[in-house]
Design a binder for these strands. Structure first.
Lengths: 224, 224, 224, 224
DNA sequence: AATGAATGAGAGTTCATTCAT
DNA sequence: CATGAATGAACTCTCATTCAT
């Protein structure tokens, strides 16, 4: 529809083309800018003007795409966290291998795709400011916490069903997996606390070690 | 000392007593109210009117005792965290027992006196908002982070000097002690993340387990 | 009455004596402190705490002696300006000499007793802030402007009556005397404007010159 | 320039015209309102809400155009005083005639363009409140006092160079020109002092007389 | 008589949100 | 679709004045 007002193709008029293309990319650019700033300064301390400016649009334009600052935040969460779960669930649907391998794989790709990216800052943000923005916290629980827990629970359940893991109370066991990852994210995004003496935490090693520890705890003991 | 000028006991002269007691208690009441709110809502999101109201005074009164919101925060930190270090250092000066016992004792009393109290929320607060309030972050580093590190370093050094611990790079080793405690505090003050299914972390057990793990890693191996 | 509670004479108990004596001097000390500060910073910008502090009493005490900041200001005006007129009028009542001499004398003693003192800052203050404090302005007009004008008018009238001065419209002529003095006060109290290159105005010379110029203009011309 | 994008005249499209015109006119309207109020009530006593209200906008809008009350004041000074100096310097660059004529012309146009306007109230304002707002005072010195002194100095220097004026210390001589003008401004803006009996000062006559007196003093005496 | 703790209205400033263009 | 000027509620901090002691 936008092209109805165009006389020249994108090729002939590259400047305009850029503009038009951007028009469709706007929400994505805003979300990217918002992710950066939310992670850097927190939700309350991030000003919408800044987000708009970093995305190269005006403040008014932002409100054209997102009803409010909170809706913008939700979009950031969906784009960077909850949107991933469908993909992940699909991957695990077809995963072949032991539950142990599944868990190892799960945590490795989580680190690659989320933990090591800016998106992991959203978790810290929610921990810090969730109390002041209950609606945001609730949304995050629905969209991220529950699916995440479900995913881990599923892996563990699979191990138990196959006899690979000992039967345990899943409600507790999932935290053995999740807690170290949360710690890792918090550590990563709290540099101010350890400015002197670099934080001595190599994430990949940390994850590998923690994974094996947890697996040790989960495995079914044949002798028992 | 106020009573030195009083002829009658509080019982006989309740009105005066009330006034005088409150006058001297004001800063403490304000600091207590501020601790509550800062921990609950964060620094930026806490309104000075609220602090005043919770302490039972007007907004103006707060500024009678604290030059600014930031000074109020510093007072909260001093009262609840940094003020403790002199006492602790004194305790360790006369501590008799192995370095291992010293570390176990240290972490246990830390949990009793700080970790389990609201004061531990200040650490989370600084992690979240330190970036937005550089002066506060710097103050916290000077008053809490540095003395805290020094205290742990001292224990480890003692163990190394006595041959109880293997010689290690202290700059890294102290984090093996501190990191789990920081995690514990963050966990404790981020309930929004784990509302469903109670957080399965029993702090005292967690500390005990972590302590033994760290000690395992620190001990000198006679065979080596 | 204050002495009714004294056991020892002032001589025997100098500390207490000082206190008692000060008690009666309080209003005067407050007025002196207020003069300093009003002249230095203006009426609105002077805080009553500062006045009290400079007088060595508490803020509450100030309000014991003066109903309000405005009343304090009025007291400063009476003490330093309007109170002088009775004395001056008396002096002129018995002054012997020509009207010219009287004017010269008048301006010289005005400079000595008012113009060269801090009190002259009150005039500048009224010029600056009179518009914002109508009641103060009105008070000043009643207490200072009118008596001042009357005094000058009287001198000129005497010169005219005696044939020494030419008959002129007094309403205008008095300004020929007063305006240069006002300029002098403004200049004196507006140093910020001429920080570079010291103000080249020697007040005594300025007054002498202006006086002679005005007298030239006032004298009756025998030839006419 | 705004009209370049308009197809219809203001008359045909009054709504748009109104908006656009106002948008560009805002800073000017705010500066005009601020000049009025600053001159009327002084800097500290002028409320930003009042300035905004008089300009027909909300308080927030004012801060859209000026970072702070102080910046607003500086803009008022630039617009009404310091901005004029380029124009004046240009005029004097091409002035033909004696230094005496130049001085006469200078003071006459100064009165027309500044002295007789509200802008002259800014000088009084700085004299009164400069001490309480050092940054403002410094700005005024840089932007107004120095250029003003330079302009007068230049005229006098020209007269001395041409042999028209006797050689004198310029640092002092410029005050002979400036001081009477300052007095005039103070007088004009201090009506409270002379409400009864109209101030007997006709500004144009005053300037003419003062100018001739100063010129008398400056002229080179051929006989000497 | 003297205190000084307490007040609360009001100041300058910020920022998410709206809406005419 | 895009703008950015405009808003106004909310924030921190100030200070003349009061009043229990």
């Amino acid at each position: 529809m936008a092209s109805s007002r165009r006389f020249f193709s994108d090729k002939l008029c590259p400047v305009r083309a850029k503009r038009e293309r951007r028009k469709e990319a706007r929400p994505g650019e805003l979300i990217a800018a918002a992710l950066d700033l939310f992670v850097e300064k927190g939700f309350a301390a991030t000003r919408v003007d800044e987000v708009a400016a970093r995305a190269g649009v005006s403040k008014g334009t932002l409100f054209l795409y997102f009803q409010s600052k909170e809706e913008l935040f939700k979009a950031v969460v969906v784009e960077n966290l909850s949107g991933r779960f469908v993909e992940w669930n699909a991957e695990f649907e077809v995963f072949e291998g032991s539950a142990s391998d599944m868990l190892r794989y799960c945590l490795r790709v989580w680190w690659e795709r989320v933990g090591s990216t800016k998106a992991s800052g959203l978790t810290k943000l929610l921990m810090s400011e969730g109390g002041n923005f209950p609606e945001l916290a609730e949304f995050y629980r629905q969209e991220v916490v529950h699916p995440g827990h479900a995913l881990v629970r599923r892996i563990l359940q699979r191990g138990i069903d196959s006899g690979e893991f000992a039967p345990v109370d899943l409600d507790h066991a999932i935290y053995a997996v999740i807690a170290p990852m949360m710690f890792l994210m918090l550590w990563k995004h709290s540099t101010p606390m350890c400015i002197d003496g670099k934080s001595e935490l190599d994430p990949e090693t940390f994850i590998a070690v923690q994974t094996e520890i947890v697996l040790q705890g989960l495995l079914a003991r044949p002798s028992a």
